[in-house]
Amino acid sequence: MDKIVTKALSLFYGEKRILKEIDLKIPQNNITAIIGPSGCGKSSLLRCMNRLNDLIPESRIEGQILFDGKDLYAENTDVVEIRRRIGMVFQRPNPFPKSVYDNIAYGLRINGIKNKKKLSEIVEKSLKDSGLWEEVKHQLNTSAMELSGGQQQRLCIARALAIEPEVILMDEPCSALDPAGTFKIEELMIKLKQQYTIIIVTHNMQQAARVSDFTGFLYLGQLIEFGHTNQIFTIPEHKLTENYITGRFG
């Protein structure tokens, strides 16, 4: 089943066209990777899906994005609700300057969960799910800023998991991490796809090949090719894709 479908999606920043008529189907409970050279619009595409581009003045879209069949950009869409159901992990780990505990409880509190016992339960579960529990269980009250980069990123994932979204958007989640940190996040993603639909933007092709089930190749704002990851990385249909994955440009 397709969780998110884009139909002839174009994105503009002012006069500038960032994305050009993208048709994409994101299958549920899979990891879909979006690859492409810097500046091709990967991150912008991702940020259309939780409407974070709304923050950019003068940005507008044409076409449609369907989430469970419903138009994300319809007039009556509750953007806050959408962002609760479609979580996001950012390129640079962005924990809030609060304690580890409060970072995770944040999303719960703003969504109206006040019960202390319940909060603690969910915080623990989220940290376990993100593989961080053993490392931080004795320092839940210390500032999240004191964690390592990799730990911070897993904290951000835990924070996203806590409010039980249906989709997790990951915007180059490992680009600021060392190999060990990267490995842990990749392992985690594979575990998480049982429960979540994951879309990851990456400029690391090995990463896309390792973790994803489907891959889309984006070039200058256009979706050049989309298909099973195996197929894209072994027998790409398009010359551009082949050139990119074999490292001839990028």
Binding site: R83, P97, G107, I110, R159
Partner: peptide, 27 residues
């Protein structure tokens, strides 16, 4: 205040005012 504090909160389903009150103002 880093933009990422605002985006991080909004991405969790915070309203703009929630993100300002709990993240932007304290920072």
């Amino acid at each position: 205040v880093p933009q990422s504090y605002r985006e991080g909160a909004l991405a969790l389903g915070a309203t703009k005012w929630q993100s300002i009150r709990s993240n932007v103002l304290p920072s």
